[in-house]
Structure formats: C-alpha cells, structure tokens
Design a protein around this nucleic acid. Structure first.
Lengths: 220, 220
DNA sequence: GCAAAAGTGTTATTAGTACACCCATGC
DNA sequence: GCATGGGTGTACTAATAACACTTTTGC
C-alpha cells in the first residue's frame, strides 16, 4: 500500500553502470561490444561512487585506466520485466590499449539490442559534439602524433572531410598542441612533424560537475 | 562473499530523483528549497521512468507540468553512512506557476547542505551555459513578453549586462521569436511590442538522448 | 625525376562587439 | 513639454570557409 510519502521500494530497480568504450586505431573508431550485444558494465559496489564503478569496469578490460571517462546520461528502462536504471559513461582509450576483449570497428558493429543501442548512439552523438568544442579527441591519440593522423581521427568521428589548411590553423591557434622536436619518416615523401597534446583545454572545454560545478557564482 | 561477478547488493544504495526548479518572476530568478535545505525529490516508483519521476515531483508542487524538464547529472554520495544515488533534473516554470511551496529568489537562498548544493550549483551552471546556445530561456517566460523582459531574464541568469541592440538583433535573427500584433502599454512611454516563442529551437539546440540520440548515424 | 604525402596564405563571408540617438507615450 | 523606457543602424574586429601550389623525401 503506497501513499505519496512512502513510494517503494526503490530497491527493486537494479542500478548498473554501462560504459561505451572508444579507441582510434589509426584508421577507424573501434569499440567494445560483447558477443551478446551488451556493453562492459557492472552494478556499483555499495561503497563506491559511480565514477569509480566506471573506472573499475574499464580497468577490468585493460588493466589500465582509460585516458578519459565521463558520465553521459542515466537511462531508465521500465517497459519490460527487466526494469533497470543504467548510468552510462563514455571512456576513451589511446591506441595502445589492448586487453582480453577485442576491439571492433564501430562501423562493423551490427544492430545492438535496445538498451546498449541507446547508450552507444548517445555516446557517439556526444563524442561527435564534443570534438567541436573540447580537447576530447586527444585522449584517443598516442602520445605523439602527426597532424594528418589527428585530422583522420576527427574526420572519421565526424563522418566528414575537413579542409587540411583550416584544420591545421584551428589546431595551431587552439593552444592544444605542442610541437615536438621529432619527425616521422615513413614512405617516399616528406617526413611529418610530431605533436603532442599540450594539456590545455580548448576555450569552451565543457562543464561537467566534476570540472567546475562546485564554484558558487550567484544568479541575481 | 563477493566475487567479481557477484558484486552486491546494489539494492543497498537508495536511488532518488532531485529537481532544481527555476522561475523568473520578472525581476529575479527564483527557486524551490525546503526549510531544511533540501530540494523537491522522490525515489522513483518501481514502474516509472526517471523522467516520469521528475515530472511527478514537480507536478506535486504545482499541479501543473513544468514547461521544461531535463536530466542534468547523476551524483553518487558514498562518503557517509547515508549513501545514495541522486539523479538530478532541472525544471523551468513560467511565471504563473504557483503552488503550495513558496518560490524564493535564488540570490537569497543561503548556503545549502552539501548534496542539494551540488545539484543547485550544477543546475545554475548548466542553465547559464544553455542560455547561450538553446531556446531554454523561453520556458521561463510568459506566453507573451517584451524584448526588454526577455533581456532582463537573460541578464540575471548570466549575471551580466547585455547590449540592447545586439541582444535584439540576435533574437530577431535566431528565428526563435514571433512578433504578435499586441503591444503592452504601461507607464508614460512608448508601448512595447509583445513577442512569443516560435517553438523553433536555436541552431545548436542541444542533444539530449530524448531529443535525438535514437538517430543512428554511423562513425566510420 | 617522379610519386606521395607534408606543409603553407589569401580572399570572401559571416558572426560578434561597441557604441548614441530618435520615438511614442502619460502626465 | 518633459520624463520614461522602446526602438533602431553603422563601423570594426574576429572567426570561418573556400580554395591550389610548393616542399621534402624514398626509390
């Protein structure tokens, strides 16, 4: 018998943390999907925060921390018997990340079951959107990389060709790049300069609660 | 005894939906905070989605739906005995929204306890950010409003003065406004034209899973 | 010397910023 | 007729988009 003050019991809706993983292999974006179509996930341990759960999930895959982990959205599925609440995360890995589970090119991942599909679709939407105004792409790159490689990563995430000169100028003026002394020679052509991520975020490096929400600026 | 496959029991972490409510009273942004410093909230009913829980929470306050409800972020608090997971929402109301609980100017709300403070701070950060690239502000306005009123709402959320001519041009070119035939006469001066929200979102009207994430555009 | 990818500048358009005066009304 | 807020335009600057050739290398 449930009154408006005693709505129960929330315990009956399981909570799960689900992680959309991405890696750039130099040619395509890859992800982790299990043979049954599910994503890496776990219920939170009772005494760990959701962020820690997400970190634990990816650490279980590669015994390395992801380069970047961010909460995406919390989905609640109530339409079937298997009710659950899924807190979704996005995790980005450098190309070196290898583990027990195989990476699959995102394009070759067939239609997923409804719930993982919701998470993956939203993850790709956010990844694409964040490319434009944050330094998120650098977490998919190796320590040192050429501008051509960086542009390829952008292009395959955005699904569009970018102008080489505009791209390079944009990167150069963003402050996100540091030139290294090294070059990469490979093939019968001019060697490419290697860059690394400066660690400085793009101007509008966005606002997650972790990054900024503790500031108390008043609204009048 | 918990192995890596049997992490239990998630049921021990209560789930709650917490809503940061905002209204623009013509002079200041107002919010709802209970005397004990908490925000309107409820655990989800077992068979309702989180979005519905949020809607139910605000409907309980005003017996009207909020003009706008959006999920913000899911916080997990594990540092004390009162562990809980809080799915936070932002809800915007038109000035007419009145109910059993009193609106309080946001500026007069003293320091809140840690958990509601986290939610409120992030809500104000997101509200401010979304002003710039979405049509979110219109959900705080009455059906018809003058450009001066709209600008005042923007200014008090942003905490900054805006240039009248630039503001008006920006609004006019955004396609978000519709001119009405009516004017407002009040006081010894030229009457002001009344506008209403066209329903068309600003160009980059952002991507929540509800609005768009079901689209399946591939990443190569 | 040629194939292959690296690297580089200019012009045109658009969006944003700064800034000051006339207009319609009530009293 | 004057006080009050409503309404308007222009010039400058910064960001974005379009576009084609030269450079360095390996073979």
């Amino acid at each position: 018998m449930s009154t408006s003050n005693h709505r129960q019991d929330p315990a009956s809706i399981p909570l799960r943390v689900s992680v959309a993983c991405f890696r750039w292999n130099g040619e395509a974006i890859e992800t982790i999907v299990y043979p049954d179509g599910t994503l890496p996930s776990s219920p939170p341990d009772p005494c760990e925060s959701l962020d820690v759960t997400a970190q634990r999930v990816v650490k279980g895959l590669f015994d390395t921390h992801a380069a970047y982990v961010e909460q995406l959205y919390t989905f609640s599925y109530v339409s079937t018997e298997a009710r659950e609440t899924v807190v979704s995360y996005i995790a980005l890995f450098p190309p070196e990340a290898e583990g027990s589970v195989a990476w699959k090119p995102l394009a070759t991942v067939g239609p997923l079951p409804e719930r993982p599909a919701t998470v993956m679709n939203y993850a790709t939407v956010r990844l694409r959107a964040k490319l434009e105004y944050t330094a998120i792409a650098f977490h998919l790159m190796p320590r040192a990389f050429t501008l051509a490689e960086l542009q390829l990563a952008y292009e395959s995430i955005l699904g569009a060709q970018l102008d080489k000169r505009n791209f390079r100028r944009r990167m150069a003026t963003s402050g996100m790049l540091e030139e290294t002394a090294d070059m990469r020679r490979e093939g019968p052509h001019r060697p490419a300069r290697l860059y690394r991520y400066s660690g400085r975020a793009d101007r509008s490096s966005y606002l997650t609660p972790s990054s900024d929400a503790t500031s108390q600026e008043s609204i009048s």
